[in-house]
Design a binder for these strands. Structure first.
Lengths: 91, 91
DNA sequence: AACTAGTAGGGTAATTTGGGAT
DNA sequence: GGTGTCCAAATTACCCTACTAG
């Protein structure tokens, strides 16, 4: 029943987008991407939302592969985890 | 409608927040989240409280109701378990 | 009484945060 | 306007062993 939205850390999202974790934080601060804060203040991002952002625009980018990252790549169809208006105002 | 009065173990809460069980324990020790201790010293957390924390952001709110008294949003902690502003203004 | 799994406690490295400057 | 790097601080992740829960 769960859409299977795992939560990703800023570092994970940054690796997916090939940007700095700081940039991901800026996106969250600007409201361009939904973010969940832990009681400690750290941010967590929804896997489904990040996925939609990555595959939605069509600007496919090679995924990270430089470090020792044990993240299985889901080459298959999306898990259909779109669950909400992830779109914020674009400019 | 079920607010979920179930008690969650540190491991469960950790999985929900994508953090380490130790981190959840630290939250309880810091008073950032309500915790119930078992006679043996282990901690248990209320599902309703954790759920409320997970809903953190929520910049979106459809105010389209226009008179239709829709369904109650699950943002109702109500349970007596709220000890105050969960969000602590950090530095 | 025995067992496995999870949790508590302390300690140290890695990550994340926030602002400012380039 | 947006992104990458600098700093200091906090928070979090993983190491260990001992105890509790079922």
């Amino acid at each position: 029943m769960d859409t299977g939205d795992r939560l990703l850390t800023p570092g994970e999202v940054a690796a997916l987008f090939r940007v700095d974790p700081k940039t991901v934080t800026r996106w969250a601060a600007a409201g361009r991407i939904g973010s969940i804060r832990t009681p400690g203040g750290h941010r967590r991002f929804r896997e489904s939302e990040v996925r939609a952002l990555l595959e939605g625009e069509g600007v496919l980018d090679d995924l990270d592969d430089g470090g020792a990252n044990g993240r299985p790549r889901n080459t298959g169809p999306s898990q259909g985890g779109n669950h909400g208006p992830t779109n914020a105002g674009l400019h």
